[in-house]
């Protein structure tokens, strides 16, 4: 079961990559960036999961040794938390750029945007 879950996460990364490379619409490229971010977040969170584990929050009267024996890995969660903020910042800037491109060229289509063709 575990390998199937990992493969789904990798499939998500692939869909994002496909949107980024093969699509010609600026909005779809932004969507591709967002999908790539989801895939990375999902993969990292899943790598920290432990069978039957619970959140790494200290219960009442619980020692750290007991916490370490039952909780999931907290380190990937910290990385993902950072990534979520980065994602939001990136989306804000990219959407601003797309709005600017639309104001200038009147379209989201990369074929009609002369200086973006590549």
């Amino acid at each position: 079961m575990g390998i199937a879950i990992y493969m789904m996460a990798f499939g998500l990364l692939l869909v994002g990559l496909y949107a980024l490379v093969a699509k010609k619409n600026v909005v779809r490229i932004i969507i591709g960036i967002a999908i790539l971010d989801y895939g990375i977040n999902l993969l990292l969170v899943l790598m920290g999961y432990r069978h039957g584990g619970s959140a790494p929050i200290l219960g009442k009267g619980e020692t750290t040794a007991q916490l370490a024996a039952r909780s999931v890995d907290p380190l990937p969660q910290v990385m993902v938390l950072t990534n979520i903020v980065v994602e939001l910042a990136m989306v804000v800037v990219v959407v601003a750029l797309a709005i600017r491109i639309y104001d200038r060229y009147g379209t989201f289509d990369m074929n009609d945007i002369r200086r973006l063709r590549g």
């Binding site: 967002a34 977040n41 969170v45 899943l46 920290g48 999961y49 584990g53 619970s54 959140a55 790494p56 929050i57 909780s71 999931v72 969660q77 993902v80 938390l81 979520i84 903020v85 994602e87 939001l88 989306v91 804000v92 959407v95």
Partner: peptide, 20 residues
Amino acid sequence: VGAPDLTFPQVVVEVVTLVL
């Protein structure tokens, strides 16, 4: 998967991204 600390920032980011 035991990451409630991630759920709430993710929801907030999700709503903001969707609105944008």
